[in-house]
């Protein structure tokens, strides 16, 4: 019976899987940083981590990122929480240094008004446009295309014959 997979192909697949596993293992060891001993505090720290944007890889939270700076910030958040900060105080600590930018959810204030209200405004505008468009069209069409003389004559003819 012939082998289903060529021995060389099998060897290459094995090698690639091996490299994948090794690479993955390396990443895992890199991102480990010591959790707090108290599971309640650690859970709070992680809640904060998930709200803080990584400054290096901008669309990840520091919880998800394995950038060096994200790790440093995770440890700082843990330190603040262990020292008795509330979650909001720990977040404010980072906002003071990096600005609102570190928040994955931007706060609602004067500078972010357009960001929060813009979509609603655009939706209202679209609704208003649609309303005017659909309301105006039938009347406009009737008005814009009056019957030609030929059509008028034929219409009169038809009406006459029926009468």
């Amino acid at each position: 019976m012939r082998d289903l997979v060529h021995p060389w192909a099998a060897a290459i697949i094995a090698l690639m899987v091996g490299i994948g596993v090794a690479a993955h293992a390396q990443v895992v060891t890199e991102i480990i940083d010591p959790p707090l001993e108290d599971p309640v505090l650690e859970a709070r720290a992680q809640t904060v981590h998930k709200q803080i944007r990584c400054l290096v890889c901008q669309n990840q939270s520091i919880h998800d990122s394995n950038a060096g700076l994200a790790r440093d910030l995770r440890i700082i958040v843990r330190d603040r929480i262990a020292a008795g900060d509330t979650n909001d105080e720990a977040i404010q600590y980072l906002v003071n240094r990096y600005g609102d930018w570190v928040l994955l959810k931007p706060p609602f204030k004067a500078a972010t008004l357009v960001l929060w209200l813009g979509p609603i405004l655009i939706l209202l505008l679209a609704g208003w446009s649609a309303r005017t468009y659909y309301r105006a069209t039938p009347a406009q069409v009737a008005q814009a295309v009056p019957l030609t003389e030929e059509e008028q004559r034929r219409l009169a003819e038809i009406l006459d014959t029926e009468a």
């Binding site: 400054l55 290096v56 700076l69 440093d72 910030l73 700082i76 240094r97 990096y98 600005g99």
Partner: peptide, 10 residues
Amino acid sequence: GRVGVDFGVY
């Protein structure tokens, strides 16, 4: 890197 963080270094 703590002083860096205090300076907002990223």
